[in-house]
């Protein structure tokens, strides 16, 4: 499945539902789809639109979904310059706990089985395995 999403934060919810509702039954447990996949994809897509594409209406975010026997991989790629994912502060440290922003990658890493970035830093791959 491939999906191009306009750089409009208001589209995140609909795009997430479109992807989640098109996964074949049995690929992942309903609970993993309803919570882990939806939350992680909303994070990745929101980050791509806001920080990657700067909400520029002339840019799109590309989503590609790959299905394996017991695995789902979701690639989310924006048109931005990329970023270094190794330099993100710990949102659970006392000095960051009351900050409004900065939890996105932390949440993604806890909800999926594997997270990978492309070399440029403008693409993320979310891997969720069955079970």
């Amino acid at each position: 499945m491939k999906l191009d999403v306009p750089s409009d934060l208001g589209m995140v919810g609909d795009a997430v539902e479109l992807v989640a509702s098109h996964l074949p039954p049995g690929t992942l447990s309903p609970r993993r789809i309803s919570f882990n996949l939806r939350t992680a994809l909303a994070e990745a897509l929101g980050n791509a639109i806001r920080y990657g594409n700067g909400e520029d209406p002339d840019r799109v975010v590309r989503i590609r979904v790959e299905l394996g026997r017991d695995v789902v991989r979701i690639y989310v790629v924006d048109d931005g310059a990329g970023f270094d994912p190794s330099h993100t502060p710990d949102p659970t440290s006392p000095e960051n706990l009351e900050r409004e922003f900065g939890r996105g990658l932390f949440v993604i890493r806890h909800l999926v089985d594997d997270v990978a970035f492309n070399e440029k830093g403008n693409g993320i791959c979310l891997t969720l395995r069955a079970g």
Binding site: R38, A42, G46, E100, F101, R103, G104, F106, V107
Partner: peptide, 17 residues
């Protein structure tokens, strides 16, 4: 509620303050 992303969490922190 089905799910909350980090922006949703952030707005709760902001509102609480």
């Amino acid at each position: 509620t089905g799910y909350i992303d980090s922006s949703g969490l952030g707005v709760l922190v902001s509102l609480s303050k």
